[in-house]
């Protein structure tokens, strides 16, 4: 085969060959692909269990070629905790949206991070409740209009959008916390790196990793896919800065050896 015919862009082995139910321009599909690639590269597809949230990604297990489990709305980190404690040599991913992770599941989010469970959280922040038709989320931006904030989010009434990474960065246990985005190819590549790193740390048994990914929901924003991506850059990133908050595998390795 000549170099020219080697496909540079292909469907990863871990991504099921079906059409997803996601809207055009949605970030979920991109993120699924990155997870599938990372699992394939780490050679852990056959020992990974993906926990799907209640949210637009409720069928995520249909699209990624690993064992799949469902959790009640917001409870994915607790389900992941139970599964990982029972089967510590498996890889467990908790995939969650902003309503799931920061509203109904806030308790589970904080305590799972605080215990430093050896799991990976993939947090897809699209600033809205996608699945239920576009209600205000805990991460909906100030002034952003949604079904349930028709005059725009008013912080005086409902508070400011919550920054998950910053919140979790106050806890001692997590090994890795980073916020990335998927609004353009360069940021997608960075997100891939972050997901890969988080999963690698789990493979090495280093504990809790949290990757927040700013993502597009053009449907509920009522805009074209391209505009949706620009909105992530122009509106979301100023409030949710892309940043590595925590990355301390060496410390975790030492702790592991000491214990």
């Amino acid at each position: 085969m000549s170099a020219k015919t080697i496909p540079m862009y292909k469907r990863p082995k871990g991504l099921t060959d079906v059409r997803t139910h996601y809207c055009a321009g949605c970030g979920h599909g991109i993120i699924h692909k990155l997870i599938a690639e990372a699992l394939e590269e780490l050679e852990v597809l056959d020992r990974t269990i993906l926990i799907a949230p209640v949210g637009c990604a409720v069928l995520a297990y249909k699209y990624i070629e690993v064992d799949g489990l469902e959790a009640a709305h917001g409870r994915a980190p607790a389900v992941a905790t139970g599964l990982k404690r029972a089967l510590p040599d498996k890889m467990v991913i908790s995939y969650q949206g902003d309503g799931d992770l920061l509203a109904i599941g806030t308790g589970e989010t904080i305590h799972t991070a605080n215990r430093g469970e050896d799991i990976t959280i993939i947090f897809v922040n699209n600033a809205v409740y996608g699945m239920t038709g576009g209600q205000m989320a805990p991460t909906t931006l100030e002034g952003q209009k949604t079904l349930t904030s028709p005059y725009g989010r008013n912080p005086a009434e409902v508070g400011f959008p919550i920054r998950a990474c910053e919140l979790l960065d106050t806890l001692e246990s997590p090994v890795y916390i980073e916020r990335t985005s998927v609004h353009n190819p360069a940021s997608v590549r960075k997100t891939k790196k972050a997901i890969l790193k988080a999963l690698k740390y789990q493979k090495e048994g280093l504990g809790y990793s949290f990757v927040e990914i700013l993502s597009m929901c053009p449907t509920n924003l009522g805009v074209e896919p391209v505009v949706g991506a620009d909105w992530v850059k122009d509106a979301m990133i100023p409030w949710f800065p892309l940043k590595k908050f925590r990355d301390r595998p060496e410390e975790k390795k030492e702790e592991k050896q000491a214990s």
């Binding site: 489990l69 607790a78 498996k90």
Partner: peptide, 25 residues
Amino acid sequence: TFLQAESELAAISMVLGAAAGGVRA
């Protein structure tokens, strides 16, 4: 595993996760 959960909502979800792994919970 003994784990004091953060709530009963979490505890029962942990049971769900462990049970899904095929062990007695």
